[in-house]
Computed example of a mutant assay.
Amino acid sequence: MFPALPRFVLIAAIALSGAVPAAISAQAAESGWDGDPRAAVRLISGGTKVDDGGPTLRAGVEIRLARGWKTYWRYPGDSGVPPHFDFSKSENVKSADVLWPAPERFVEADGVIIGYRDNVIFPVRIEPKDPGRPVTLRLALDYAICEKVCIPVQAKAVLALKAGGTPAPAVAAAEKSVPRPMPLGANAPLSVKAVHRDNGTRPERILVDIAAPDAPAVTAFAEGPSADWALPVPDKIEGAPAGQQRFSFALDGLPPGASGKGAELKVTAVAGTEAIETTFRLD
């Protein structure tokens, strides 16, 4: 479970607009918006891209947010809930994998939240059941938006996808903003160089050294091996080697019975338009 949500308005989840998604068009590049002036959602066709697994259909889930409103990353931080993408009603879809663009850190009265503002596009990679048949993507999205208060909302969108063509620029740009996997200790301009356990503190702290010589502002996020871990958002501290930046977070917010020993953690580092994620195991 995620941390308690002190700022959430405890109301039933509502659809922002209640509107029925626009009629499906085989030629449409995007669906209609489902939402209101605070926030709205649509699907974007992304064309076809060839990668390591062969050609795959691409799409994007776009959330449009009014000024001052935010929504959440897959790990929301001290409060909030992550978006839940449901494509189970889609036609001729074997799998639909959602990618998460690099988020921002927001300091609020109730703590630090992790998420997005303005507009965000979540890239989706789609594998059809039958590559020779049309694909219709049907999205039911449960998410939350936050200004002074936070409210749960729902949205729906439908879009017919066509195979072929180059990836749509907006979806391609969103894919570039997704953190790249990077092994611990990699020789790269932005990389996690070392992870240390500080046993002299209670609760125990984890120190992470990140190489980013050309980036004055680096943000780091830490995640546990499952959703019931609620690790604090790392803070930047002094003591890093030259050319690196050091971050620290308490080994706190673990599920009952977990000690952290042998756990696989993930650190995401964001520096400007570059972002990486590094997975490591605690000794």
Results as ranks from 00 to 15, higher is better:
Ala4Ser: 14
Ala4Lys: 14
Phe8Asp: 11
Leu10Val: 11
Ile11Glu: 14
Ile14Asn: 12
Ile14Pro: 00
Ala15His: 13
Ala15Glu: 14
Leu16Asn: 10
Ser17Ala: 15
Pro21Arg: 09
Pro21His: 07
Ala22Tyr: 02
Ala23Arg: 11
Ala23Cys: 11
Ile24Ser: 10
Ser25Met: 07
Ser25Gln: 13
Ala26Cys: 02
Ala28Asp: 14
Gly32Asn: 10
Gly32Phe: 10
Gly35Trp: 04
Thr48Pro: 10
Val50Trp: 09
Asp51Ala: 13
Asp51Val: 05
Gly53Ile: 07
Gly54Val: 07
Gly54Arg: 09
Thr56Leu: 13
Arg58Leu: 15
Gly60Ser: 04
Glu62Cys: 07
Ala66Thr: 01
Ala66Phe: 10
Lys70Trp: 02
Tyr72Ile: 03
Trp73Val: 09
Arg74His: 09
Pro76Asp: 06
Phe85Glu: 07
Glu91Lys: 13
Ala102Gln: 00
Val107Ala: 15
Val107Trp: 04
Asp110Glu: 14
Gly115Asp: 10
Val120Lys: 01
Gly132Glu: 12
Leu137Gly: 00
Ala140Gln: 14
Leu141Arg: 11
Glu147Phe: 10
Lys148Cys: 08
Val149Asp: 11
Pro152Cys: 00
Val153Lys: 03
Val153Ile: 15
Gln154Lys: 15
Ala155Glu: 04
Leu161Gly: 03
Ala163Cys: 04
Gly164Val: 09
Pro167His: 12
Ala174Asn: 03
Glu175Arg: 13
Lys176His: 14
Lys176Glu: 11
Val178Asp: 02
Arg180Gly: 00
Pro181Asp: 10
Pro183Trp: 08
Leu184Trp: 00
Pro189Leu: 01
Ala194Met: 07
Asn199Met: 05
Gly200Thr: 12
Pro203Thr: 09
Pro203Phe: 01
Glu204Val: 13
Arg205Pro: 04
Ile206Trp: 00
Asp214Asn: 15
Ala217Tyr: 08
Ala217His: 12
Thr219His: 01
Thr219Trp: 05
Ala222Trp: 00
Glu223Gln: 12
Gly224Arg: 08
Asp228Pro: 01
Pro232Asn: 08
Asp235Glu: 14
Ile237His: 01
Glu238Ile: 12
Ala240Val: 05
Arg246Asn: 08
Phe247Asn: 08
Phe247His: 05
Ala250Val: 03
Leu251Ser: 08
Pro256Lys: 09
Pro256Asp: 13
Gly262Asn: 08
Glu264Gln: 14
Thr268Met: 09
Glu277Asn: 15
Thr278Ile: 09
Thr279Val: 14
Phe280Cys: 11
Leu282Tyr: 06
